[in-house]
């Protein structure tokens, strides 16, 4: 196996950390308190469709 390329990690170590927060809003607020540039994504589970309904939707969409 070839050696993994760490260049993207080294770049991160030199850049300003900018964070996309997905999930707990609390963590977004804690990041903002630190003055970190961040954006919060309100995440919700996709509604679970019944199989039949899903098949019909796949056909028509």
């Amino acid at each position: 196996m070839s050696e993994p390329d760490v260049s993207k990690v080294l770049r991160l170590f030199k850049e300003e950390v900018k964070v996309i927060n997905v999930g707990l809003e609390y963590f977004y607020k804690e990041l903002r308190k630190q003055g970190v540039n961040a954006a919060h994504v309100i995440w919700q589970p996709k509604p679970e469709l019944e199989k039949d309904l899903e098949d019909i939707l796949k056909k028509i969409l």
């Binding site: 991160l12 850049e15 997905v22 999930g23 990041l31 954006a39 919060h40 995440w43």
Partner: peptide
């Protein structure tokens, strides 16, 4: 505070984002 409903739109709002903090189930 502006919140986003998709990763796509959040990334547009924060160009150069380099870390994601994920805490979904």
């Amino acid at each position: 505070e502006t919140y986003y409903y998709s990763i796509e739109s959040a990334l547009k709002a924060l160009p150069g984002a380099n870390v994601a903090l994920v805490s979904v189930p």
